[in-house]
């Protein structure tokens, strides 16, 4: 499965559009991590626990999107976009979406 955030893939022809595919996940922060982060916040800097948590969640949302595209028989997803929003209670939603297509190598 090829994933790009451009409209086309160089060297490949898009022969069929399967439609919009998306994947999401809502992740709550772990209490222990939250307390640790509150202390870390006094000194500023990177909050590694959150960086990892969000990266994991984004990978999860992406794999759900890929699964949807595979179910449609697509071979690539173009125009992939990521969005994140914080929803109630300090939880974050990761959303990945794109256009599932069938791409064949250009002759």
């Amino acid at each position: 499965m090829q994933l790009v955030n451009t409209e086309t893939i160089p060297g490949w022809n898009i022969t069929e559009v399967k439609g919009l595919v998306s994947g999401n996940t809502i992740r709550a922060k772990h209490l222990g991590r939250d307390i640790g982060a509150a202390f870390k916040n006094m000194a500023g800097g990177e909050l590694k626990a959150y960086t990892e948590l969000l990266a994991e969640s984004r990978a999860e949302a992406t794999s759900r999107m890929v699964a949807e595209a595979q179910a449609l028989g697509a071979s690539a997803i173009v125009n992939v976009r990521f969005t994140t929003s914080t929803v109630a209670g300090g939880a974050a939603e990761m959303y990945a979406y794109g256009t599932a297509v069938v791409a064949v190598p250009a002759p």
Partner: peptide
């Protein structure tokens, strides 16, 4: 743009400001 397998790349960081800031 030499033809090759299309692939995404991601980089992220969560950063906070210190107390004085």
């Amino acid at each position: 743009d030499e033809p090759r397998h299309g692939e995404l790349v991601v980089g992220s960081v969560v950063m906070g400001a210190d107390y004085i800031r």
